Every structure is written in C-alpha cells, then in structure tokens.
Computed example of a mutant assay.
Amino acid sequence: MKLASRVSLIKPSPTLVITAKAAALRAEGRDVVDFGAGEPDFNTPDSIKNAAIQAVESNFTRYTAVGGIDELKDAIIRKLQRDNFLSYKRSEIVVSCGAKHTLFNLAQVLFEEGDEVIIPGPYWVSYPDLVLYTGAQPVIVNTQEKNGFKLTPEELEAAISEKTKALIINSPSNPTGCAYSKEELAALAEVVIRHSLMVISDDIYEKILFDDMPFWNMAAVNPALKDRTVVVNGVSKAYAMTGWRIGYAAGPEPVIAAMGKIQSQSTSNPASISQKAAVEALNGDQQVLVEMVREFQKRRDYIVSTLNAFEGVSCLKPQGAFYVFPNVSALYGLSWKDRKITDSATMTEYLLEEAEVAVVPGIAFGDDRYIRISYATSMSIIEKGLERIGKALRRLS
C-alpha cells in the first residue's frame, strides 16, 4: 500500500516518543524518572471536575456548535479582556480539541505552497511539522542563549523574504522557558507591521510566569497588530487539564470562520463535557493558579542551581513554563563503557538506559547542544532524577 506523500513530511512527536519509551521501561519493572512529558503533575481542581460531573448529570452530552458553545466563547472573551486587555466578539473565537488542534487548523487555513513561516529556535517540536504539512516552508531563526533565547528585531528582519507569511511566537517558551517583555515584543511588532506579516501568538504557558514578570502578547502590546494576530491558548497547562482537550483561538473573523469550516469536516465540536469544565476554569476562582506557579518556581530554582553545579553543564534560568534547557555539549566526546556521547540523542539514550531518567534531546527542538528537562513533577522525583543524572554524568570520561 502506498501512503500519501504528505505523511513523509512529518515525524512523530519526539516528546511523546520519549514518554512512550519511559512507560515501556516502567512496564518492564524499571524505576524510570520521567522528565519528558510537558504535563502538570497537579490534579484538575475540584471545582472544574464538579462542573464536568454536573454536565454529565444534566445530560449535556450531545453535539454542540462546531466552534464551541456560546457560554465558553463568552468566558474566553471575558478572560482575554480581563487578562490581556483585548476585546473580541463570539464570531472571532473558535474552540478546538486542544491548542495543538487549534494550531493545526490555523496552519491549514493560513499557509500553502510557496509561503514561508518564521519560527524562532529552539522551538516547540510540532511547529515545523505543522507548517510543512501545508506545503509551506518553516524558516528557523536560531536565537542566542546570550539573548535569553529570544528573537531580536535584527534577526527577524534578516529572515524575512517576499515569501514570508507569518511569525510564530511562543512566550513563555517550550523548551527554553524564555518570556518576552513588553518592550521586546514592541520592537518585534515594528518589524512585523513594516512587512505586513501575520502573527501566531501561542500563549499556552501564559499563566506560568515567575518572579512577578507580567505577561504580554503581540496584539496587546501594539493595537495595530490585533487584526493581524491570532492568539492561541487553552486550559491544559494552567489548569492541569491536559486530558480534557480544550484549546481556542481569537483573531480576525475570516480566519476564525475558516478554522471552523476545517474543523467541521474533521473533529466537529470539542467534547461537550470538557467545554463545560473549561467554562468553570476560566470563570472560577483563579487562586489555584497562584499556588501552582509558586510550586513551579520553587522547583525551577532548585533544578537550575543543581544543574549548574554539575561539571560540564550550564543552565539558563527560565522565566516561565516548566522546562529547563541545559547545555550539555561540553560533555560530548566523553564515554562510559561502550557508550560514547556525541550529541543530544546519545546523551538522552545514555541517561535513559544507564540512569533510568527520561529527558528529551535538544535536536528535537532545533539545537543539538541541549536537552530538555520538564519539572512538571514532584520535588521528590526531581531530587531523585537529578541525583541519578549527576551520578551518570560523573561516570563519563
């Protein structure tokens, strides 16, 4: 059987592959510490679960409007006004089956063969594949650690061609945890406006920021960009609702309508029960977010200081999300027994097989000098995993 050629354009998500390998080893009885998955270890708050239970008990279990129920759209509108100072109407909101689904639909609507899409690297693993699947070309701009892994106006300007259609900005970032300030986004916005680009603002980690850093996105920073920006967000990361699969987009009405059309022929509506849960998440008490972020910041501080104490490892302190992206390239060329560390993939294999710790190779995010470690797990597991990593790295010679 011959598969469609477009299937060869994309690859399985590396983070999910690592998670599956860790699960397989655990099934064999091995005590694997999983630093691979980008999934909060907190339980979904009770008020949100209760809203879902009420939806089931009231038989809210049928199809809904393709792009989401009005109650959820209104909750999203209030959230965007309250948190981001952005005003939208229902026709400018679409709800999908997670933020990844939202981004997939958006790419299908905006991009086609001949287009170029600028993606700052290191990047979330799915961005290039989402662009490639449309026939467009991702243009990776490698950012510098000395700049906090953030795209500069000069780097953006140099990457733009007559084919450039859009820029994807993820702040706070997966995998680096970097977050853009209002001033940094304003400087990028000037370049975007000058070249009439679209902006995809992936705000999924918006609520997970540290050291009292305020959140801004491109549309909020420069009102002139609101009609050229699609804001993508969801409830997965902030409310520990990864399995509920609710993401959403806010943007120009023609774009949102087209996304709804694509969705109508693929998944139809997101789960009715999950939509009711998301209403409670956005409208309910937000104090739970404060408590989660406080715990994430405590973990960040511990993991960064510990990693920087390892010989041959350097780790920038992230400003948000729940990942660290340590540079381990100084260890390349070293070996232990028959294992030689030559790149991020062999480092990852070594840590999984010898230390029983699952991390993600930096090459999956576009930079082979690094590995990604998720600290969306308990402090006790973090301590155990780092102790194992430290011992494994000390064996190398």
Rank of each mutant, 00 (worst) to 15 (best):
A355D: 06
I246V: 07
R62V: 00
Y239G: 14
N222P: 11
A321M: 13
A330F: 15
S378K: 11
N43G: 15
V279F: 02
G284L: 10
R300W: 08
S96L: 11
G366K: 04
A330C: 13
M218Y: 02
G260C: 08
Y205L: 15
L282A: 04
E356W: 12
R294L: 14
G390D: 09
K337D: 14
Q287R: 11
A186G: 04
N222R: 14
W124D: 00
A52V: 13
P12M: 05
G312P: 15
A187S: 05
I371Q: 02
R82G: 07
V288F: 01
P172Y: 12
I160M: 03
Q54Y: 05
P175N: 11
M292N: 11
A250D: 04
D338P: 12
S268W: 10
L156M: 07
G284R: 07
Y375P: 01
N147A: 08
E71T: 06
L225Y: 03
V109L: 06
G247I: 03
F35R: 09
S266P: 01
Y123L: 04
P214A: 14
S181Q: 09
N222V: 09
Q144H: 13
F104R: 01
T306R: 15
R394N: 12
E291T: 05
L130Y: 01
D212M: 08
F210T: 00
G98R: 00
K100Q: 06
P12N: 07
A37L: 10
A219R: 01
P45Y: 07
W124I: 13
V17H: 01
E184W: 10
P14Y: 10
L307A: 12
L334E: 14
L352Y: 10
V125G: 00
G148T: 10
I10Y: 00
N50P: 03
W336Y: 15
P45D: 02
S374Q: 02
L167R: 09
V94F: 04
L185M: 05
A27F: 08
V279P: 06
A99F: 07
K337P: 10
E162K: 15
A249E: 03
E157H: 03
P326L: 14
D115P: 15
I363R: 06
P361L: 07
V232H: 02
W124C: 04
Y375I: 12
Q108Y: 05
E356T: 10
N142I: 07
A20F: 08
G177N: 14
A23G: 09
A376Q: 06
I76S: 02
Y205P: 06
D212A: 11
V328Y: 12
M1C: 08
L282M: 07
P153D: 04
K261G: 07
L331M: 12
D34Y: 06
E57S: 13
D202Q: 04
C315W: 06
S266W: 02
V131A: 06
D46P: 04
